[in-house]
Design a protein around this nucleic acid. Structure first.
Lengths: 117, 117
DNA sequence: AATATTAATCGTATATTGCCGATTAACGAT
DNA sequence: ATCGTTAATCGGCAATATACGATTAATATT
């Protein structure tokens, strides 16, 4: 997808990058928030809360579905969207691992201490 | 009361999406890992550890610099790259907020009841 | 000054993304 | 069966992203 050759990146790197890519658009981040807030997670409701056309929102939903961050259940003529907590947990773990794993670079082996939040 | 059709995305959403976009390529995730592991964080060292040409790596470094996840310090003819712990911490907070903020949906496969209108 | 080295940038080609209007498919209701 | 509604997909276009070789700018060494 990214380069034409065999991609020689580790699987966890590819997986994390793919998840990040899916989160790499304001509309898609917003969609996740909307799905978390809205009891009825119907596509039309999402469209109504985004400044984008229905076709565009549908594409963003497709991208979120691709990485399994959301699921779509057909309910009559509508589609009810739902967060996938399993993938969300997986994503959270991967991002946490990344951030805690890379610490800081000041001097070799030394981990930068983080200010308390 | 806001008209969501005409309003732009909230700043925190844009900021998070922008960080995610910067992490949305295996090469850039890998660069962060390399910078965390490699004591001397010189550009050439990074290039040596990636399956990409120097010009391409330079572009990825530029993207990471754009969102301030890394810093480049000119050291003679070389450039010493360094993780920016401040932005990393900020990013970790934002991702954590996203994941914990949206919690989870229902159990997998289960669909919300539709509200009649 | 001349040369070697490093890394950013240029130029370019290709692929992907983002956006929308229009269309289609699926479904409920009449 | 027809109509209206919903949402996915199609077609097309512009913008962005990715990749690389070639070039340039900066510096260190000789």
């Amino acid at each position: 997808m990214s380069d034409t050759k065999n991609d020689p990146f580790a699987t966890h790197v590819v997986e994390l990058a793919d998840l990040a890519k899916a989160l790499g658009h304001p509309a898609r981040v917003r969609i996740l928030e909307v799905l978390a807030q809205t009891p009825g997670c119907v596509c039309g409701d999402i469209v109504a809360q985004l400044p984008l056309a229905q076709a565009t929102v549908s594409q963003h939903l497709k991208e979120l579905k691709r990485v399994d961050l959301i699921q779509g259940e057909i309910a009559g003529p509508r589609t009810c969207y739902c967060l996938n907590s399993k993938t969300l947990t997986r994503a959270r773990e991967m991002f946490t691992n990344l951030f805690t794993g890379i610490g800081c670079c000041q001097s070799e082996g030394e981990v930068h201490e983080l200010e308390s939040e």
